[in-house]
Structures are given as C-alpha cells and as structure tokens.
Design a protein around this nucleic acid. Structure first.
Length: 262
DNA sequence: GTTGTTACCTGTACGC
DNA sequence: TGCGTACAGGTAACAA
C-alpha cells in the first residue's frame, strides 16, 4: 500500500532512468486504469520527451514536453523496468533504452494525462515534510472530526496513509479517536514532529513492504520491521508491554496502544 | 462548504 | 481438498 515514503522511493528509483528519455511507445491494457483520462491514447504520448519526475503527495507526476502524465499507484500499483508482461500489466511504456510496465492487481491506481497538472492533484494540501507546526495546528484546528480522519484527508496534508498515520499518532502518544480541533498546540506540535520523523525514517528505509510493494527495480522496503503499532495487534507495545489493540476508526483498521495513547 | 458512508477491486487468510 | 467469506484500504461519488 504505497503511501508517501513508498511513492518517494519509487520516484527516486525511476528518476535516473526516465529523465531525458523519450516515450517511444505506449500501450494501455485496462480501461479502468484510465478512468480519469478517457481520451488518453498512445499517440498523445509517443515521441514526447520526459523532462522530469516528481512526487505530489501519493501522486507521481511525470512532466513531458507538452503535458503531465500523472500516475497514482492506488493499493497495488507498481512501476517496473524490463519485467515480463503478466495478467496484471495495465500499461506498457516503451522508452529509448528500457520498458516501463505499470502493474496493478486491484486496479485502484490510475493513469491520466493533461496539459496542466490535474485539478485533483492541484487541490491537495501541503506536503507533511514542508508544513510548519503552526500551519499544521491551524489545519487540524479547522477539522471537526477525529484526528485519524484528519490526517488521512489529503486536503489537510498530502501523502499520509493508514500506516504512517497510526505510527505518527503512536509516537505522539495521541489516541486516534481524539477530535482534531480539540488538540492543544503542544500536542499538535508533538504530532507534527512525530509525523516528520516517521516519514523521514521510512524514506531512509525505502518504505514499508506489507503485502507486495516494491520499487521500480523490484526492491522491497525495510521500514515494516520498525513499525511500533501497525500490523502488531495483540503483540506487546514496544514502550510499555501492553497488548496493541486494533479497532476501526474513520472506516480504517487502526492500531494503537491503549496505555501510551491518550 | 464539511463529514461520513459506500463502491470499486482481487489476492490472501481462515473456518468449516 | 475445496468452497465461501471476511479482510485489506486510497479515492471518488454520493448522502446528509
């Protein structure tokens, strides 16, 4: 399940192999993946050079000569160089010196193309690694919902997903069911610091490989062994030994320590 | 405008 | 062994 650190890792592994190359050919094998770009055809992309690649939240933005190719990996999306075509290959991009395949078992991911960066990418909130503690406090203070839902809301901060939300809340010792607008400056400051720390640590470890996440070279991430709560239901809290609980908050499986998080 | 719920999708784990 | 079912969750569409 690619969140900010996983997408960042994918972009870093793609960058040296796509920047400056041309899209020689494109093939789309699954209409569902093009649901936000119904008029995208291979001809639109063919011959265009790739100027750069960047991440915006969980979106991968590939800037071309005449537009932007925007890819979201959804839950099971992967971008892989020079691998065999499988039943789950949804798109194939031929570059000058390699082939980039978009694999996506569950097809929650998407590929779109537009002259400008699409509206749904433009309306995202700030990057969690760039937002200041004061801006973060104001953003949470404006949300009349539980803090877990607020962190998952991509208009509050872009890139947080279920894993890193649970991990940041644990490190900040905040119960995920706490109302976002009831958190003090001190506690949002602690949450801001925890969010930044956990994201940086995860990027350093090249993300978390829970089910089948790999980067474009097929390498797994290593952060999953450093999780304190996510995926650890019933196991002892690494801080206090109390069994980690799992419940549902904001329609998401939510892991927390009932003793450490208040 | 915000917030909460549901659908999408399919491999995996589990119980019988 | 084989079948049915619950579960995983990012986003969009919808309801309230």
């Amino acid at each position: 399940m690619p969140e900010l650190p996983e997408v960042e890792t994918v972009v870093r592994s793609l960058a040296p192999r796509v920047a400056g190359r041309h899209i020689v050919s494109a093939e789309f094998l699954a209409p569902r993946v093009l649901r936000h770009a119904k008029d995208l055809t291979p001809e639109v992309l063919q011959g265009q050079s790739i100027s750069s690649i960047e991440r915006r939240g969980k979106f991968i933005v590939i800037l071309l000569e005449r537009g932007a190719l925007v890819i979201h990996l959804g839950m099971t999306g992967k971008l892989l160089f020079d691998t065999p075509v499988t039943p789950y290959t949804r798109a194939i991009f031929g570059l000058d010196d390699s082939t980039l395949l978009y694999e996506d078992v569950r097809q929650f991911g998407s590929i779109e193309y537009s002259a400008e960066v699409p509206e749904r990418v433009g309306r995202l909130g700030p990057e969690p690694l760039e937002i200041t503690p004061e801006e973060f406090y104001r953003a949470l203070h404006a949300r009349n919902t539980v803090v877990k839902a607020a962190l998952l809301n991509q208009r509050v901060v872009r890139g947080m997903g279920n894993i890193y939300t649970d991990e940041a809340l644990f490190r900040a010792r905040i119960d995920p069911r706490t109302k976002a607008n009831r958190l003090s400056r001190v506690r949002t400051g602690r949450l801001h610091a925890a969010m930044v720390k956990v994201l940086r640590e995860a990027i350093r470890n090249r993300g978390s490989s829970i089910s089948n996440y790999v980067d474009s070279e097929g390498r797994k991430g290593g952060f999953q062994i450093l999780h304190r709560v996510y995926g650890r239901a019933g196991k002892p809290c690494r801080e206090c030994g109390t069994p980690i609980r799992k419940t549902v908050v904001a329609q998401r499986g939510t892991h927390y320590c009932p003793k450490c998080q208040k």
